[in-house]
Amino acid sequence: MDSQADAWERQTGESAAAWEAFACYRDLGLSRSISKVAANLNKARSVLERWSTSHQWVLRAEAYDREQDRLWRAERHQAARDIARRHARLASAAQAKLVARLQHLDPDRLSPSDVIRWLEATIRIERQAYSIDQIEATATASGAAVDAPDVAQLTDEERRARMEQLRRELETRLTDSETAS
C-alpha cells in the first residue's frame, strides 16, 4: 500500500478501473463482496479477484470501516457534549428565573413542597447535563462518600427550613453574580 495515501484512497500504481472497482467494493459497506462489484460494474469476477488480491481490498476496506467508525464516534461524542452544554444553559436560565421569582415572593405564601419540586427539577436537569449522578455513582462504587440528602424524607417543617436555607443561598449567588456583572 502507498505510505502517502490513506488505505481507502487511490494507491500509487492502481489503474483508474481498479480504483473504481475498489471504491465500489469499499462503499458497499459490511455487505460488500466481489460478486456484488462484478454485478454493479459489469466486470469479470476473475479480474476483480486479481485486483482485490494485488491491491489488498480487504485490508483497505477494513481500514476504511475503522476510520468511518472513528469519525462516527467522534461526531456522536461532540453532539453529546453540545447537548449537555445546551441543557445546562437551559437549566441555569430556569434556575435564574426561579431565583428572581423567589426574591419577590413571600415564603409564607408558598407551599414548601411546590418550591422544592421546582428546585429539584432544575437541579436534576443540570446534574444530568453534567453527568453528576454518574460521577457520584462511580465515587460511591469506589468507596467515596457522597452527600445527597433525600428531600422526600423530610417533614414539612424540615422542608420549610431547607427551603429557607436554599432561598438564602440562591439570593447570595444572585447577588454575587450581579456584583460580578
Rank of each mutant, 00 (worst) to 15 (best):
S15G: 07
D176P: 05
S33K: 02
A100D: 13
E75F: 15
S113L: 08
I83P: 03
L59A: 13
L71H: 11
L102T: 07
N42I: 06
A44V: 15
A94I: 02
A74G: 01
H87I: 10
T138W: 00
W19I: 06
K43N: 13
Q4S: 08
S35L: 12
T122I: 07
R45V: 05
E9N: 06
R70I: 01
W57Y: 09
R70N: 03
R109Y: 11
S35A: 15
C24I: 04
D147Q: 05
S111I: 12
S181E: 14
Q78D: 04
S15D: 02
S177I: 03
A100R: 10
D69V: 09
A88W: 08
W19E: 05
S181K: 07
E49N: 09
T12C: 15
E62T: 13
Y130R: 13
S46W: 15
E9C: 14
A148G: 00
R76K: 11
R162E: 14
S46D: 07
A144I: 05
D147N: 07
Q165M: 08
A161L: 07
D156R: 04
A141W: 01
E158H: 03
A17Q: 13
A137P: 03
E157D: 13
W57G: 06
T140E: 00
Q95E: 15
A93Y: 02
W51T: 04
H55D: 01
Q165L: 15
R89Y: 05
R60Y: 05
E67V: 03
L105Y: 12
E157S: 09
L105P: 08
L102Q: 04
R160C: 06
P149Q: 00
L110A: 06
A44D: 12
